[in-house]
């Protein structure tokens, strides 16, 4: 293991040296020609948590949504550069968006279980979308995903209750289960705890560390402590002079929060702006 300046922990591994689940090369996102994120380049290490941090307006969420082509829905949005999932170019590689999105799951800011579906139906919704009909597989996947999302024990008696009957934290974990059930390689999380209370937040943070075994996670968070707690690699974005988000520093989390390379990163983590 190569040493990283400023880190003395012998257990430390540099996530940048691990195999990449996704690679971003010169990724820019523009809306109606106005650039919102410019030239982002880094690798997302497989089976690790990568955090995107930065003040509001720095384009964290915009960047995250380009990773599963959600910008395709927005009229006037354009993504340039290259984004690889494994070896596949997700924009030019000819992979259908439906397939892509079943390989890259997403969890949103506010819990958004399907309100007309039961807990069980929510958990297996993605499988059904993908053509799975076998009851035994659906049942097994529901249990597996709900267990992974730390929800199985509390809902196994009421799988046919509506999702709206769950608390906010439980709803968000249901959304995580829903995304996990499709067995994605990467899970994108867009400020997943911003609408939750501290206890629910803590549970989801613990869950993320647990989930690393199963899936690669990219999380956007406005909460630096959260990034420090859960992530292995942190990318810091900042709004440039033309109001487009730029990548300032991508470092192992331990290093970014202890000995950042860039003065602007230091200013940000010390709370001087944002």
């Amino acid at each position: 293991m190569t040493s990283v300046s400023g880190i003395t922990d012998p257990q430390f591994e540099d996530p940048r040296l691990l195999p990449a689940a996704m690679s971003l090369r010169d990724v820019s996102v523009a809306f109606h020609g106005r650039v919102a994120v410019r030239d982002v380049t880094f690798d997302v290490p497989a089976n690790r948590v990568t955090a995107l941090i930065g003040p509001s307006g720095s384009g964290k969420t915009t960047l995250l949504r380009s990773l599963n082509r959600l910008h395709d829905l927005t009229k006037g949005a354009s993504v340039s550069g290259t984004i690889l999932l494994g070896d596949t170019d997700i924009y030019q590689g000819g992979i259908p968006t439906t397939v892509l999105r079943s390989r890259i799951g997403m969890v949103f800011q506010r819990p958004n279980p399907f309100p007309t579906m039961t807990i069980y139906e929510n958990a297996v919704a993605g499988l059904r979308f993908n053509g799975v009909k076998k009851k035994s597989v659906l049942d097994a996947a529901a249990e597996s995903a709900l267990t992974s999302a730390d929800l199985w024990d509390s809902v196994k008696q009421r799988l046919n209750a509506h999702a709206a009957t769950l608390s906010g934290g439980e709803q968000q974990r249901l959304c995580i289960a829903r995304a996990l059930a499709v067995e994605p390689e990467v899970l994108l999380m867009d400020e997943p705890t911003s609408a939750l209370d501290p206890i629910s937040t803590k549970r989801i943070e613990e869950l993320m560390v647990e989930l690393k075994k199963r899936v690669t996670i990219v999380i956007v968070t406005h909460n630096m402590q959260q990034a420090a707690r859960v992530s292995d690699l942190t990318a810091f974005l900042l709004m440039g002079e033309d109001r487009a988000g730029e990548q300032i520093e991508v470092s192992p989390t331990l290093k970014l929060f202890s000995a950042p390379e860039d003065q602007r990163t230091l200013d940000y983590i010390q709370g001087r702006f944002g």
Binding site: G131, S144, E183
Partner: peptide, 15 residues
């Protein structure tokens, strides 16, 4: 693993 395999297979078959 079986779930994953079945899912991928169905996903491709029904795509």
């Amino acid at each position: 693993a079986e779930i994953r395999e079945h899912l991928r297979e169905r996903s491709v078959a029904t795509l």
